[in-house]
Design a protein around this nucleic acid. Structure first.
Lengths: 403, 403
DNA sequence: GCAGTGCGAGTAATCGATTACATGCGACAG
DNA sequence: CTGTCGCATGTAATCGATTACTCGCACTGC
């Protein structure tokens, strides 16, 4: 592979001149043209390794996510990547697989590669490596998951209002025995969600006793299922369950079904994190949606502040409740997605209805969701990266209009 | 951050000695201990950038995937990552977002970073950049998607047998008007799937006319939906649809539902790529499952062959049909794992079926498995042994797979 | 006409590691 | 006792870029 020296020889100049031309520091057209011609002829590409060594800047950011196969994280990663690229950085994604050890391993690797900054959705409770990195002065920003006692900016969603909405929702639907499946003990995120939920239920006189609080060790399908099993074996099983992660929700749903029970008839199910897939489950799941892409974007900006030496603050963006059908809310007359079709199989859904950009986000006034299309925003939003600018609303609208 | 010189000074030796100790070339215990002590005291970590510059090896592999938010690719990426790490390489994932231009951009970046080798699930039809890279001698292996006219090893799944099974399945269930949603014209993968499917249907006297072949430009939810719309507007709409990518299948499903039609009553739906979520859709979708994790593993090994200068050959692993309930097949007999029998009114779906892979196995490869693991390695191949490597990871995914 | 100024371009140091080669010391053989 | 061999270690070149410094040329002003 041609290097800068080859180019210099070919163009009859020194390597310094080539470098200057390539970095736009040479205003002289004549030499610049000669250099560029040589570059083109040789197919020269600057060696980023050498450049990074000299400049002490790699132009790469690191992102550590909890689990690559968790759609919440992939959407997050996608958003981060798009934003990083648009700002001239490339992104190196590390997948912790929810294992603190693997996470530390990855962080080490990334640091050794001298990435310019690091975003971490920490698995488990803060690791020593994380503290080391923070102490060593590597620009670091936490994403989605806060870590107690680590003095580093954190970008995450605030679920307080959404959980309050959920409590109201449960109260309105007469669900009096809620349960919650939370992340492993000790994680800040899990503890927060539990606390806010409990507090939100209190005004309605609804209790959340410890027996209906289930912690999973793994944040996975298996853990969710196991906890659900415990709930259903209770003398008084819950009539509503909040799973604080999407994978755990699927596990819970499986256990419910395996017992021949039904959602929402026997037990309501609500999931934290709204991923497009939940619209297609049976039934479509009521969810607490985090502003995933915005979180990603904000995290990149916060990290850049740190990289450029400016102080950076934590960011909190609001999550919101997206009511669907998994809590048994009354279906509207035209509802097509009822487990047992009410009308004739044909045409229960007025065509027009589908084209209305029905606002599904009504934070403090949960409304009955209507048809499956309602969630189209989020989906369109998901792939909006492929259309350079994410103007989800417009996209959605157009898409519907053309329906 | 401490560098090798600092360590040398602290240990009272030369940098060369430090380097030798760290690379295990110094058998002398005395100096080694001094050096290691200095390393520990200073918290020294070798600068991989410098090392890469000198050795012309970065220890990193690149992986370009079509779409980060597509679960097929994330599972693939996860498998590749695990395998790469176990062999001492780290992985840099690039997300093309199904955009050839973005893909080229990424490839450039990766090459400039001097990764040791590159795995590509090419978006679109082979790009010039890809050819350049191949010509320049960078170790390159295609993954999942072949590119015509590019003389490079390719690791992918062979869907021929699975499609033959599917044709038989359709024939047995009396579905006589199949349709197919394929990837953008010009892609080898799409063309293959179409051709094999058509050929497989012929023996049963089932036609697949062009009007029931829909190409999407985007491989996304939106594209699948649009094509489905066209199908349903046909004077004679199809009674069975094969979506050759999971995202497109979801779009198709949405369109079906939006019209008040039902799967499988009105239209059967089959999806290419089996992702865990499809077991939770309504109804659980019949799928053509690719041996995703095995593909990832095989790809890494093939790439390493190339990196180490050995010739490497293409790899073809068989895909298989996983019948569920989206074609209206009669419910399979099941052995009870659920404590109670299912009594849901609509219930052709035994609760168990979703947990036991047993009834799911392919016509071609019926194997008595009582272990959820089946989903993962029933595609016997090259490295079934490699499970031993990453125990925890494998477990995790098998668990998921058992969903 | 000569010093001063400005600027384009070359020389060489530098980043932090690896590694070929040189060196020096101890041991052993003649 | 000395020459040589072996081996641990040091010296310095090297990877491919960036960049401070310097040089030299042309132009300008007094």
């Amino acid at each position: 592979m041609a290097n800068i020296k080859d180019v210099a020889e070919r163009a009859g100049v020194s390597v310094a001149t080539v470098s200057r031309v390539l970095n736009g520091l040479s205003p002289v057209a004549a030499t610049r043209d000669r250099v560029l011609a040589a570059v083109a002829e040789l197919g020269y590409r600057p060696n980023n390794v050498a450049r990074a060594l000299r400049t002490a800047r790699t132009g790469a950011l690191g992102l550590l996510i909890g689990d690559l196969t968790n759609p919440f994280f992939t959407e997050l990663a996608d958003a981060v990547e798009v934003e990083a690229r648009s700002l001239g950085y490339s992104l190196v994604i590390g997948n912790a697989g929810e294992s603190p050890q693997q996470q530390d391993d990855h962080i080490r690797t990334l640091i050794d590669r001298r990435i310019d900054g690091l975003l971490v959705s920490s698995a488990g409770t803060g690791s020593p490596v994380l503290r080391e990195v923070a102490a060593a002065g590597t620009p670091l920003v936490l994403l989605d998951r806060a870590v107690d006692g680590l003095d580093v900016p954190c970008v995450r969603a605030d679920g307080r209002a959404a959980l309050a909405d959920l409590a109201a929702h449960f109260a309105a639907l007469g669900r009096r025995r809620p349960a919650i499946i939370v992340a492993p003990a000790g994680t800040r995120t899990g503890a927060d969600r539990l606390r806010f939920f409990r507090e939100a239920l209190r005004p309605y006189g609804i209790e959340l006793p410890d027996e209906r609080v289930g912690a999973t060790p793994d944040l996975q399908h298996t853990g969710g299922r196991r906890v659900m099993r415990g709930f259903l074996d209770l003398p008084e099983p819950p009539d509503a369950v909040l799973a604080t992660d999407n994978l755990m929700a699927l596990g819970a749903m499986d256990e419910i079904r395996a017992r021949g029970l039904r959602v929402p008839d026997d037990v309501a199910l609500v999931v934290y994190d709204d991923v497009p897939w939940f619209r297609h489950t049976d039934p479509p799941l009521t969810a607490i949606a985090q502003p995933t892409r915005e979180l990603g974007r904000a995290a990149v900006h916060t990290l850049l502040e740190r990289i450029e030496g400016r102080p950076a603050e934590s960011v909190l963006l609001p999550a919101r409740l997206v009511p669907r059908h998994s809590c048994g809310e009354p279906a509207p007359a035209h509802e097509a997605r009822a487990p047992e079709p009410v009308d004739a199989p044909r045409a229960p859904v007025p065509a027009d209805e589908r084209h209305e950009p029905v606002p599904e986000h009504a934070p403090h006034a949960p409304q009955p969701a209507d048809d499956p299309r309602t969630t189209d925003d989020s989906d369109t939003d998901t792939d909006s990266h492929s259309h350079s600018h994410s103007h989800s609303d417009t996209d959605t609208h157009n898409e519907r209009g053309s329906a």
